[in-house]
Each structure stands twice: as C-alpha cells, then as structure tokens.
C-alpha cells in the first residue's frame, strides 16, 4: 500500500475514532420537578422558556429555570443540542430582558448535583442533566 494511502486511511480512522469519542457522551435531557405537568412542549416553547421570554408552562404553572454557568460543558451541550443556540447568544438574550425590565435571569446553579436538587425541590422547576444522571427525584421530558 502506498505511503500516502496509509496516511489517508490513518487520518480517516482517527477522525472516525474522534467522532465516536464525541458520541460517547450521553445525551442531555430536559428535566422537571416531578409535580410539574409540562405536557408536550415543543422546541420553540422550551426555547422561549429557557430564553426567559415565556414565564409559565403551557398548563399555567410558573416556570423556574435552572442553568449551569455559561462555560460548563453540560450547559454548552444543552444550549447547542436542545435549544440550538450558543451560550453567549442565550446570555445576550437574558441581558436584554433583564436590563429592559421585560424578563428575569434564570437561576444559576454551581454543579450538576445542585441542579438535580434545586429542580427536585422547586415546583415548576426546569433544568437539564445527562441521561445517566437522572434519578427518581426528577422527571424527564421529551422535546418534540
């Protein structure tokens, strides 16, 4: 096999391995307080609630949004995979609401464990976790 071909195959193998490594992450899921009945929420509704433009869930209950810091890897994955935006874009939309009086900032938690606890203890609480980190204290909601 020519040398060039060996290099090419190696590069392709490496890329495949890298992409598999990326997919080795567990999927990030939307979680809610067990007493909350968000019903079927569309992606636009989830986006409107996490962008803090919509203050209640479709059933009328007040939404309490919990997020990790902007640079937390799980926050980054949640915003990109579920909301389809980058953390800095989400931060800008929060700032525009907070400083024009038309919305509030989400509640920021420091760790994944705190995220689970706060969502579990707050009626109307919404947040996110890795699928494997979910336990009975919170419910998981599919985004349509």
């Amino acid at each position: 096999m020519p040398k060039g071909m060996i290099i090419l195959v190696s590069v392709v193998m490496l890329l495949l391995w890298c992409s598999q490594a990326t997919y080795a992450h567990e999927s990030v899921v939307l979680i809610a307080n067990p007493s909350t009945q968000p019903g079927n929420m569309t992606r636009e509704t989830v986006r409107a609630i996490f962008a803090m433009r919509q203050r209640t869930l479709p059933d009328g209950e007040a939404a309490h949004v919990f997020v990790l810091p902007d640079k937390h890897p799980l926050h980054e994955r949640f915003t990109k995979e579920i909301l389809g935006v980058y953390p800095h874009q989400l931060r800008l939309s929060w700032d525009r609401l907070v400083f024009s009086g038309t919305g509030q900032a989400p509640n920021q938690v420091k760790s994944i464990e705190e995220m689970r606890q706060r969502v579990a203890n707050t009626p109307g609480g919404l947040g996110y976790l890795e699928k494997g980190a979910v336990d009975d204290s919170v419910s998981v909601f599919a985004v349509e």
Binding site: M41, T42, T45, A48, T56, L57
Partner: peptide, 24 residues
Amino acid sequence: YGLLDYQFITGNNRVAGVQIGKLK
C-alpha cells in the same frame, strides 16, 4: 423604566402580554 408585565397567554404556539408603566 418601571413597569408591570402581565402575560395572559402562554401556550405552545403563542405568548401574549401587556406592559404598563414607564417602558423602554
């Protein structure tokens, strides 16, 4: 600014509200 913002519709398809006060 100093305002009251009341959202009277918050559904999957629509959000609607009214603001009263000193508004930006």
